[in-house]
Lab assay of single mutants.
Amino acid sequence: DKPLMPYMRYSRKVWDQVKASNPDLKLWEIGKIIGGMWRDLTDEEKQEYLNEYEAEKIEYNESMKAY
């Protein structure tokens, strides 16, 4: 599988927590909350997800070359 983009990594990490805090919200409403949370992160906080993505992207590209 292709590596997940940084925002999607963050979304997967916080989804269950946001859903548990807001059990009556629809999926798109939860997505909207998470989008706002992502925008509110500092560049340093986002960098963690970007670093994970870049590392996985290198691994993915290497595995595709071998294939």
Score class of each variant (00 low, 15 high):
residue 29 E to T: 00
residue 24 D to Q: 09
residue 21 S to D: 15
residue 22 N to K: 05
residue 40 D to H: 05
residue 63 S to R: 14
residue 62 E to H: 08
residue 24 D to M: 15
residue 6 P to Q: 03
residue 28 W to R: 12
residue 50 L to C: 13
residue 51 N to V: 11
residue 36 G to Q: 15
residue 54 E to V: 05
residue 43 D to E: 13
residue 24 D to W: 13
residue 49 Y to P: 03
residue 57 K to Q: 13
residue 63 S to A: 13
residue 46 K to M: 03
residue 23 P to D: 00
residue 46 K to Q: 06
residue 58 I to A: 13
residue 29 E to S: 02
residue 36 G to R: 12
residue 1 D to T: 06
residue 42 T to Q: 06
residue 14 V to M: 07
residue 6 P to W: 01
residue 3 P to V: 08
residue 61 N to M: 10
residue 49 Y to D: 03
residue 26 K to A: 11
residue 15 W to D: 02
residue 39 R to A: 15
residue 15 W to G: 04
residue 61 N to P: 06
residue 49 Y to M: 05
residue 29 E to M: 00
residue 62 E to Q: 12
residue 43 D to W: 09
residue 4 L to F: 15
residue 25 L to G: 04
residue 37 M to Y: 00
residue 63 S to W: 07
residue 32 K to S: 09
residue 1 D to F: 07
residue 64 M to F: 07
residue 48 E to P: 15
residue 22 N to E: 01
residue 29 E to C: 01
residue 17 Q to C: 06
residue 66 A to S: 14
residue 26 K to L: 02
residue 42 T to D: 10
residue 11 S to H: 12
residue 36 G to P: 03
residue 26 K to Y: 00
residue 37 M to L: 03
residue 7 Y to H: 04
residue 60 Y to M: 12
residue 22 N to Y: 09
residue 33 I to C: 03
residue 44 E to M: 13
residue 47 Q to P: 01
residue 56 E to M: 01
residue 33 I to T: 06
residue 16 D to G: 08
residue 43 D to M: 13
residue 38 W to C: 01
residue 57 K to M: 15
residue 60 Y to S: 13
residue 67 Y to K: 01
residue 36 G to C: 11
residue 19 K to A: 11
residue 66 A to T: 12
residue 62 E to K: 14
residue 16 D to N: 08
residue 48 E to T: 13
residue 48 E to Q: 13
residue 45 E to G: 04
residue 54 E to T: 05
residue 50 L to M: 14
residue 33 I to H: 05
residue 33 I to N: 01
residue 15 W to Y: 04
residue 56 E to V: 03
residue 63 S to E: 14
residue 54 E to C: 05
residue 46 K to G: 00
residue 5 M to T: 15
residue 47 Q to V: 06
residue 40 D to E: 11
residue 67 Y to M: 12
residue 48 E to L: 08
residue 62 E to R: 12
residue 45 E to P: 02
residue 49 Y to S: 03
residue 44 E to N: 11
residue 40 D to S: 10
residue 17 Q to Y: 07
residue 6 P to V: 01
residue 61 N to L: 09
residue 19 K to W: 04
residue 43 D to R: 12
residue 1 D to N: 13
residue 44 E to S: 11
residue 63 S to H: 07
residue 8 M to H: 11
residue 62 E to P: 06
residue 47 Q to M: 09
residue 4 L to K: 11
residue 38 W to P: 04
residue 11 S to L: 12
residue 7 Y to T: 06
residue 6 P to D: 08
residue 65 K to I: 09
residue 24 D to T: 14
residue 58 I to Q: 10
residue 63 S to D: 09
residue 54 E to Y: 06
residue 8 M to F: 13
residue 34 I to T: 01
residue 2 K to L: 04
residue 1 D to P: 00
residue 30 I to K: 02
residue 55 A to N: 11
residue 7 Y to S: 13
residue 58 I to K: 14
residue 22 N to V: 07
residue 22 N to A: 05
residue 66 A to H: 11
residue 46 K to W: 01
residue 46 K to N: 02
residue 56 E to W: 01
residue 33 I to L: 09
residue 13 K to D: 08
residue 20 A to C: 05
residue 27 L to R: 14
residue 32 K to Q: 13
residue 43 D to P: 14
residue 14 V to N: 00
residue 39 R to Y: 06
residue 54 E to K: 07
residue 49 Y to H: 05
residue 8 M to D: 14
residue 31 G to Q: 15
residue 63 S to Q: 14
residue 42 T to L: 04
residue 24 D to C: 14
residue 63 S to K: 13
residue 28 W to K: 11
residue 57 K to G: 07
residue 7 Y to M: 13
residue 15 W to K: 04
residue 59 E to I: 06
residue 57 K to E: 13
residue 53 Y to D: 13
residue 23 P to H: 01
residue 18 V to H: 11
residue 26 K to M: 08
residue 24 D to H: 10
residue 31 G to N: 15
residue 27 L to P: 15
residue 57 K to R: 12
residue 27 L to D: 15
residue 27 L to T: 15
residue 48 E to W: 04
residue 45 E to C: 05
residue 5 M to P: 15
residue 38 W to M: 03
residue 17 Q to V: 07
residue 33 I to P: 05
residue 65 K to S: 13
